[in-house]
Design a protein around this nucleic acid. Structure first.
Lengths: 232, 232
DNA sequence: ATCGGTAATAAGTGCATACATATTATCGGG
DNA sequence: CCCGATAATATGTATGCACTTATTACCGAT
């Protein structure tokens, strides 16, 4: 009877305590929901609610009929917030600005063709622009948009609103994938970001899709020193 | 009556559909739980279950008494899995190996002192080693461990088990923060990772703590070309 | 001993209900 | 007109119950 409050938060805290203290060892089984409910003096529903989140964190594994056990090899799961660049910059207390550098229809390079799963003969809208924080280069946005998948893009004016922001407002909440990597500054990137050619830059690449249709892919190249931080 | 199945997954799918289609516009209020429950033919509990997850994704904002509304500026929330390096490498079908390069007590540089919030006169255990995939350098691990916070580390043998793996098994499931960045290879890193000096490398820095105590901080420098990928 | 079907079991979920809590609206007094 | 107490309300949570589903254990037939 280690019971206290009968809220799911209290149950979860107790469960986490037992896992971290080693009382429930990695790989070992933990009591059934019903037993825990009785021990802690709450309903099984409450225990289920508490354990579900622990399972989502990756600390325990649950299987019907087999029960729950502490994960043998805990996979740390970190949640990253990917804000719109304007918000990210303004949250730092800096003044945000965007300058459009290119906007044209063009045949994308094979790398973009592959990531958007398009044929070699499809011209896409290519938009390049620079995000500035207090006048200093912050990130270079290089984006390809499929005008067939996003027809509204023909009317978009990217001189005032960056594509980054426009797309979030226009086709919000769609799925996609993100990749993070490091990349040596090309001559063009070095000029735009005002850094030496070959400097190590943090790169975020994103593909956005709706259902089967690939809508856009973007490559954000950040100025030197950029860090992406989160808490787990 | 758009109803179908009365599972929370079905309710969630319908909610997501309405948000993505624009039927519920960004910034606009959505129906109350009770109304939705009646419309979709299910219990309010079920709607609550569905909406809670949508709120966790960052697509809607919920406040008591005020109701729920679609987020004005959707913050994309991506969940990253941070596996143990051995698992990450073996998942690629490569053979994993680890070579220890240094293990000694030393005074940490100020950057590490700051991140561990320790005084300048505390000697810490400094461990450096290389993770290999199929014999090729994969990542360089440079770790500082506070032996007062992790006394068991005195007996650990890092020649067979990397500190990365040992710590997960020894002090699992603790909190911490993670930062991702890009970094130009120093002479030492270039030699270890067999890449040109100044090459752009992907860097992951992590601090692990238990309560107030900072246990360890690590800097993982990956070989050129490394990408961290996730789906949102 | 092996195979395959069946029963048992633990987690997953839905529902009606009740109450808790945060926040907003309202209304009366000054 | 302003302020503060109070009521109204939407979400948050707990519970008992019933039923579903995935998985395992068991047992009988071959």
């Amino acid at each position: 009877m280690t019971d206290g409050a009968n809220t799911w938060q209290a149950v979860q805290a107790e469960v986490l305590r037992r896992i971290r203290s080693g009382q429930w060892a990695p790989g070992g089984a933990i009591p059934h929901e019903a037993d825990l409910a009785q021990e802690l003096g709450c309903a099984r529903t409450t225990v289920n609610r508490a354990l579900r989140e622990v399972a989502e964190m990756g600390l325990i594994e649950r299987r019907r009929r087999a029960g729950s056990r502490v994960a043998m090899r805990p996979v740390r799961r970190a949640t990253l917030d990917i804000p719109v660049l304007r918000d990210e910059i303004e949250a730092r207390g800096a003044a945000y600005a965007f300058t459009l550098q290119k906007r044209e229809m063009a045949l994308p390079p094979v790398s973009v063709q592959a990531r958007l799963a398009l044929g070699a003969d499809r011209a896409l809208l290519h938009v390049v622009g620079l995000h500035l924080a207090d006048g200093h280069p912050y990130a270079l946005e290089d984006r390809w948009i499929d005008p067939e998948a996003v027809p509204q893009v023909q009317d978009a004016d990217f001189t005032t609103l960056s594509p980054n922001e426009w797309l979030v407002l226009t086709i919000p909440f769609e799925g996609g994938d993100i990749a993070f990597s490091a990349h040596a500054a090309t001559q063009g990137e070095a000029a735009a970001l005002r850094c030496p050619e070959g400097a190590a830059l943090f790169v975020v690449e994103r593909v956005t899709w709706r259902g089967e249709a690939r809508l856009t892919c973007v490559r954000l190249t950040f100025a030197p020193g950029h860090r992406l931080v989160t808490v787990i």
